[in-house]
């Protein structure tokens, strides 16, 4: 599948934003927010900023942007529509949460709204993941890894962002850096497990079944319908050289997860906490974009079979 910049930005930026909101909300619900109201208020603003950038980026690839409002109507069947609805509903909940923290600093309203904000953020990420997980013709997406993985990467990127925010505002990352390190380890393991899974999968179909011939019939393409690339091949026939994929996977693991893990640990031991948490954020962003690029580039679509491509 063609890795379009709009969806790469959408999924990574909203991951950071909703991940941060989930951490703030969950901490507030459990009464674990550090003293002072500005971390939660500023953090919520930052989370919404990230999410908004991501959501705006996602509209860039639309053919008719002026009609984007229509995407809120089909939530009964479409995960894309559900994502739209959930993302919009998250705004008032997040704003109410920040307002409650600003007014009271703590208390039952803060706890309740915090839990609600965290839930809304995670539900939005889940809806995004299901857009991909529900697509039956793409074996690398239509599996049990996609949804939990998206949630794990959001929680990880949110933790990295929270660690930086706490360091910048309070001078010390507190428990956030340790949480980020732990999340990085989980994310590393999840990505490894995902790659093991898709490498072991067998293709969803064969060329014989694609053209209605009995199973096992030997078929090879003779003539394609057209000499140049068409929409289907550009969009669904994207291929990536195996050796490039191996290299990029290594970069994603080392830069995206290993480096933030080490840097977050450094910060938690008060070694240059601001520089370490800032570097962790940059590494996580670069690594996650690489990982997300691969998520698309390595995904194969059944329709490419018709053109004799391997799926």
């Amino acid at each position: 599948m063609r890795p379009a910049a709009s969806v790469l930005l959408l999924t990574t930026l909203t991951g950071f934003g909703y991940g941060l909101l989930a951490w703030l909300g969950a901490c507030a619900a459990l009464g674990l927010l550090p003293a002072g109201r500005w971390l939660a208020v500023g953090g919520t603003a930052l989370a919404l900023l990230f999410a908004t950038f991501g959501l705006v980026a996602s509209t860039l690839h639309l053919g008719r942007k002026e009609r984007a409002w229509r995407a809120f109507t089909q939530w009964r069947s479409s995960w894309l529509s559900r994502e739209g609805v959930a993302s919009v509903l998250t705004y008032p909940i997040a704003i109410a949460f920040a307002a409650a923290v600003y007014r009271d600093g703590g208390g039952i309203a803060v706890r309740l709204l915090g839990a609600l904000a965290a839930a809304a953020a995670l539900v939005t990420v889940f809806c995004t993941s299901m857009i991909y997980a529900s697509l039956k013709p793409i074996r690398q997406w239509h599996n049990a890894h996609t949804a939990p993985d998206y949630l794990i990467y959001a929680v990880f990127s949110g933790a990295v962002l929270l660690a930086l925010l706490e360091t910048a505002m309070l001078g010390t990352p507190g428990a956030a850096a340790r949480a980020a390190a732990l999340a990085a380890a989980v994310a590393w393991a999840a990505k490894r497990a995902y790659w093991r899974h898709i490498d072991a999968q067998s293709p969803l179909a064969t060329l014989a079944s694609a053209i209605g011939l009995p199973k096992g019939t030997e078929v090879k393409p003779l003539d394609a319908p057209h000499f140049t690339e068409n929409y289907v091949l550009r969009e669904m026939g994207f291929t990536i050289a195996r050796r490039h994929a191996v290299k990029l996977r290594r970069i994603a693991l080392l830069v995206g997860f290993a480096a933030p893990l080490v840097l977050s640990l450094l910060a938690s031991f008060s070694r240059l906490p601001l520089a370490a948490t800032a570097a962790a954020l940059v590494c996580a962003a670069v690594g996650l974009l690489t990982e997300r690029w691969l998520f698309f580039a390595e995904a194969t679509h059944v329709s490419a079979l018709y053109y004799g491509r391997r799926i």
């Binding site: 697509l135 179909a205 669904m236 490419a304």
Partner: peptide, 13 residues
């Protein structure tokens, strides 16, 4: 709106 998701959902291209 031209989001192209339907084309991803079609195995027949």
């Amino acid at each position: 709106i031209g989001c192209k998701l339907c084309s991803w959902a079609c195995p027949y291209g």
